[in-house]
Design a protein around this nucleic acid. Structure first.
Lengths: 105, 105
DNA sequence: GACACCTGTAAGAACTTTCTTTCATGTGTC
DNA sequence: GACACATGAAAGAAAGTTCTTACAGGTGTC
């Protein structure tokens, strides 16, 4: 990702990372891509719950999933981390805040 | 802050930043310290609401408040940003995830 | 068919966060 | 005293997030 997400994108990325389970997911995927069911066993959470967390991370652009067919014909969804690189300082946040969509009302 | 918050601290910091209003608060304070009531008018939110957001940011160590007495004797609480500098990559998050407190149950 | 594995989704409970309103404190000035 | 300004905090509504349980589909093997 180019080094300047919009304010709204930044908030979404930060929200995605601000959760222990999702931090563990990213950490695990940083060690290599993995498919959903295996990742759920690895981390120790239910598959539907993992599914929800994966969607948040993917929506934020931090991970990417790809459906593949294994040798024996099973559909496997592999996820891997994207090459994000966020640098958070007060100045960087001030710049991002200028591109936040104004609150309506 | 030293450049390696624990996993739990990191989650708290990210959660604190993952909100448009709090991003605006940090952005405003990055331009110079300010006191609560003025900051509330500046950003356009109620003082109690601002108070809540300030507490989250301060608890995360991103801003610091100091009570002062103005020339005419009023108690004013000034907030300013701390010198945080977070660098988020998959590898950095993987390291932080190792210091998360295990989920109990 | 029954079982192993894979995928996804939907409903509802439980919990947390966000926000408003209301109250109580203080100062100094007219 | 009434008003301007400052501070904090509590109660409850509203909204969003997290998590479980239960269901749907698919593949292949015994």
């Amino acid at each position: 990702m180019a080094d300047a997400p919009s304010g709204d994108q930044l908030v979404e990325m930060l929200a995605a990372l601000a959760n222990p389970i999702r931090l563990r997911i990213v950490a695990t995927l940083a060690g290599g891509r993995d498919y959903v069911s295996h990742l759920a066993r690895e981390i120790g959470i239910s598959r539907p719950l993992l599914h929800m967390h994966l969607q948040k991370l993917e929506a934020a652009g931090l991970i990417a999933g790809r459906l593949e067919l294994s040798d024996d014909g099973k559909a496997m969804k592999y996820y891997e981390v994207t090459a994000f690189d966020l640098h958070l300082t007060a100045a960087a946040l001030a710049a991002a805040a200028q591109t936040l969509t104004p609150k309506e009302s």
